[in-house]
C-alpha cells in the first residue's frame, strides 16, 4: 500500500475510534438522563419539594434536606481534612534525602483508603460509631463515613492542583522575599484554586450520590431532620428513596423514586455549573487565558 493511502486509512480509523469512544461515554449518560426525565416529569408535582414523607407517599422534604445537610457536613469535614492533607503532601512533606518527594507513607495510606469499597467503610461506621459509640443511626456517623470515603479524593486533587503551579511563580515569590506561608496564600493557592474547588465539588457530588455506607450509618427515616447529630432514629436522604421506593406496591411511592432521581441529577448539575463558574472567575488572570 502506498504510504499516503496508509496514512489516510490510519487517520480515518483513528478518528472513527475516538468518536466511538466518545459515543460510548455520552450515550448511556444521555439515555439515563432521558429516561429519568421521561419517568419523572409526567407526574411531577412541585409540592414534592416541601411536603414530608408519609407511609404511602407525600413529598421529599426530609430526604432533600437530608442530602443537602450530608453534603454540607462532608464539605466541612472532608473539605478541611482533604485540602490540608493535599497541602501537606504537595508543600510541607519533607523531601527524602535522595531528593524524592516526601509524604510517601501518607500518600500510600490515602491511596489504600480510596481503594476501599464504600460498603466496607459503611460497615466500619456501623460497628465503630453506630454501635460502638452508641450514636445510633444518625447524621454524624453518616457524615464521618462519607468524609472518610472522599478525603483521599480531595487530597489527591488538591495535591495535583498544587503541583501544577509553575515553579516560576514560587521562585518569583521567594525572590521577592515573601514568606512561605504568604506566598502560599497569595500566589500558590490562588493559582491552584480552580483544581481544588473542582475536586471539592466532585467529591460532594460523589457523597450526595452514595447509598451503601449510608444504609449502615443513617439507615432511613421519614421524619424531617430534628437537629440531632447523634442518637437519632435514622436519617432520610434521596438515594435511599431512589433505591427502595421504585418497586413498592404504592404507586405514589414509585413516582417519588423517580422524582428523587431527577432532583439528585439536578443537584449534581448545579454543582458542576457552580464549579465551572468558580473556575472561570478565579482564572481571570491565569496564564492560559489571554482574554
Amino acid at each position: 500500500m502506498p504510504r499516503k493511502r496508509r496514512r489516510v486509512v490510519f487517520t480515518v480509523l483513528f478518528r472513527g475510534g475516538t468518536f466511538a469512544a466518545l459515543a460510548l461515554v455520552l450515550a448511556p449518560a444521555a439515555w439515563l438522563l432521558a429516561s429519568v426525565i421521561a419517568k419523572a416529569v409526567p407526574h411531577w408535582r412541585w409540592n414534592v419539594l416541601w411536603t414530608a414523607l408519609t407511609p404511602t407517599g407525600g413529598g421529599l422534604l426530609g430526604p432533600i434536606l437530608g442530602t443537602l445537610i450530608l453534603m454540607a457536613g462532608v464539605l466541612v469535614v472532608a473539605g478541611t481534612v482533604g485540602v490540608l492533607a493535599g497541602l501537606h503532601l504537595a508543600e510541607m512533606a519533607t523531601p527524602r534525602r535522595s531528593g524524592a518527594d516526601g509524604g510517601t507513607v501518607l500518600r500510600m495510606a490515602s491511596d489504600v483508603l480510596s481503594g476501599f469499597p464504600s460498603i466496607v467503610l459503611g460497615y466500619v461506621g456501623y460497628v465503630a460509631l453506630v454501635v460502638g459509640l452508641h450514636w445510633n443511626y444518625s447524621l454524624l456517623p453518616a457524615v464521618l463515613i462519607l468524609s472518610l470515603m472522599v478525603v483521599p479524593y480531595i487530597a489527591k486533587s488538591t495535591e495535583t492542583a498544587l503541583r501544577q503551579v509553575p515553579t516560576a511563580y514560587r521562585e518569583g515569590a521567594e525572590a521577592l522575599g515573601m514568606a512561605t506561608g504568604y506566598s502560599l496564600r497569595k500566589v500558590v493557592l490562588r493559582t491552584a484554586s480552580p483544581g481544588i474547588v473542582t475536586g471539592l465539588l466532585i467529591a460532594l457530588a460523589i457523597a450526595g450520590g452514595e447509598t451503601a455506607p449510608l444504609l449502615f450509618t443513617a439507615e432511613f427515616s421519614r421524619t424531617v431532620w430534628t437537629g440531632a447529630f447523634v442518637h437519632a432514629h435514622g436519617f432520610g436522604y434521596l438515594t435511599y428513596v431512589v433505591y427502595t421506593f421504585w418497586d413498592t406496591p404504592s404507586k405514589s411511592a414509585n413516582y417519588l423514586s423517580y422524582d428523587a432521581a431527577l432532583i439528585l441529577i439536578v443537584m449534581v448539575l448545579v454543582l458542576l455549573v457552580v464549579a465551572r463558574l468558580i473556575v472561570a472567575r478565579s482564572q481571570r488572570y491565569s496564564e492560559g487565558r489571554t482574554r
Binding site: 509553575p166 522575599g177 515573601m178 506566598s183 497569595k186 500566589v187 490562588r190 496564564e287
Partner: peptide, 25 residues
Amino acid sequence: GMLFQRPNPFPMSIRDNVVAGVRAH
C-alpha cells in the same frame, strides 16, 4: 532582588503584580 530568564508575572492583575512585594513587606 532577582529577575529571571523567563518573565514570571503572578496570576493577578497588572497593578497587583507590581505591588505584590510591597504588600508582602
